[in-house]
Amino acid sequence: MRLTVLVQHEQALDTGAWVWTALPQGFPGSAGGRTIPELHDEVEALKHFFTGEDQETDIAVDYIYELPGVAPEILIDYRHERSERDRVASELTRANDQLSAKARAAASALRAAGLSIRDCAALMGLSKSRFEQISS
């Protein structure tokens, strides 16, 4: 399940410290911290209490930050771009793995056909040393 938490920055009445307050949306309770990591830790510790779910239930937390003077879109856009980057990076890794397998198969076939290493490398658009790496 997903839990959305609104985060505000405000001054504590008792200590006077500027602290972060987390307010679960649609569920009772609140959490806090003097730093964002401290707030994240407390929300993680309390999220099952907030929702009334068993400890075994997987709960993903979405944070919405209310930062005076900072448009919410700035963080939202940044997070969107970062997740897009992560998605593309993951695709690139997968494509590289696939290409490596194809390259090894091609190198093996070319060598089996009796071509020299230099010719194999030229056919595959690789340097001689790179071809040797692949075919070793």
Partner: peptide, 22 residues
Amino acid sequence: VARATVPVRDITMAKLERLRDD
């Protein structure tokens, strides 16, 4: 019949209002 969090340190208005509403 109810569950709530009661702030003990770094008490803020938002936490108190949430407790009151809960």
